[in-house]
Simulated scan of single mutants.
Amino acid sequence: MHGENFTRWSFFFLEGFSRYPRLEIVLFVFSLVMYVITLLGNSSLISITLLDSRLQTPMYVFLGNLSFMDICYTSASIPTLLVNLLSSRKTIIFSGCAVQMYLALAMGSTECVLLAVMAYDRYVAICNPLRYSIIMNRQVCLQMATVSWVTGCLTALLETTFALQTPLCGNLIDHFTCEILAVLKLACTSSLLVDVIMLVVSILLLPIPMLLICISYVFILSTILRISSAEGRHKAFSTCGAHLTVVILYYGAALSMYLKPSSSNSQEIDKIISLLYGVLTPMLNPIIYSLRNKEVKDAMKKLLGRILLPPTHESL
């Protein structure tokens, strides 16, 4: 086309881990096992929050949303990775790349906001227990979850739209997925608008929610330390421990990816971190909540009992 020095690519090559062919089978097995566990674990957590009446509380409503996000996040990238690890031609069409980029950004961004909302929920539960049911009523709970989804989806739409409109001088993405930073490395020229959008969204969805989480836990810790009984302190800590563990895992991986300085060898490290971030964290979330929460464990045992030991016919 005259006057343009770039091509509108209809498909992209994904470099992935093709530089390490002997490692691809190991990564395939690892990713497949982690993906299956992620689907089973998060689906089970969603099921028990819907079926068990004792878990119809704001904390578990948010947890169900978190599990659904983890399923969507991993499903956006891991199936493509599994196919490409076994294929010699690692390609993805433009529309597939756009959907993959959008879903990954939307689910990741929504989770950032939701984790801050869950921290506020724990703050109210521990610091204002007598008013908890009033402050965190069903309407407020649904509004908070909706705000998380809308914020994540809109910011992802903004980033994806501008990233895919950027002129690209190549179609070889040095990543195993259409990760936005890897795609933008193919840009013919740097765009101030895209850079500003990325910076603003990164600040909105990483440091600000993390600051709100830290403030919530300062108040939570202060309240817990004032509890006189050891049993009361242990119970209060146990209600926050799972959420705090998930926050550390999630933000630790996210900050290491998006806020670290770039270097010549950083892309290989990015891919490893992205893989762990994409399969390990979503897999661990339901395990962490199940191991540290008696109500979840009891509900899980009840659900497994229904599946493995169907009720006998009492009429006989």
Rank of each mutant, 00 (worst) to 15 (best):
M1Y: 10
M1F: 12
H2C: 12
E4I: 14
W9L: 05
F11V: 06
F13D: 14
G16T: 05
P21T: 09
L23V: 07
L27D: 05
F28P: 02
V29P: 00
F30E: 03
F30Y: 14
Y35K: 00
L39H: 10
L39A: 11
L39K: 06
L40H: 02
G41W: 01
N42E: 07
I46S: 01
S47C: 12
S53H: 11
L55E: 00
T57H: 06
Y60T: 05
F62E: 03
L63M: 11
L63Y: 02
N65H: 12
L66Q: 02
T74E: 03
S75H: 06
T80P: 00
L81V: 12
V83D: 07
S87F: 05
S88T: 14
T91W: 08
F94K: 12
F94N: 08
A98Y: 10
A98D: 00
M107L: 07
G108I: 02
E111R: 13
L115K: 10
M118A: 13
Y120N: 04
A125Y: 09
Y132A: 14
Y132C: 09
I135K: 04
V140M: 13
L142P: 02
L142R: 13
A145D: 08
T146R: 10
V147T: 04
S148D: 05
T155C: 15
A156V: 02
L157S: 15
L158I: 15
E159T: 12
T166D: 05
H175E: 14
T177M: 12
T177W: 05
I180W: 01
A187E: 02
T189K: 15
L192S: 13
L193V: 15
V200W: 10
V200F: 15
V200G: 10
V201Q: 11
I208H: 03
I208G: 04
P209G: 03
P209F: 08
M210A: 14
I213R: 01
I215A: 06
S216K: 04
V218C: 10
R226L: 12
I227C: 07
S228T: 13
S229A: 11
G232D: 09
H234D: 07
A236C: 12
F237K: 08
S238R: 14
I248W: 07
L249H: 03
Y251Q: 10
G252F: 10
A253L: 11
L259P: 00
S266V: 13
Q267N: 09
Q267V: 14
I272Y: 13
I272T: 15
N285M: 08
I288S: 01
L291G: 04
R292H: 03
N293Q: 10
N293R: 02
E295R: 07
V296W: 00
M300Q: 13
M300V: 14
K302F: 06
L303P: 00
L303E: 11
P310Q: 09
P310V: 08
S315H: 12
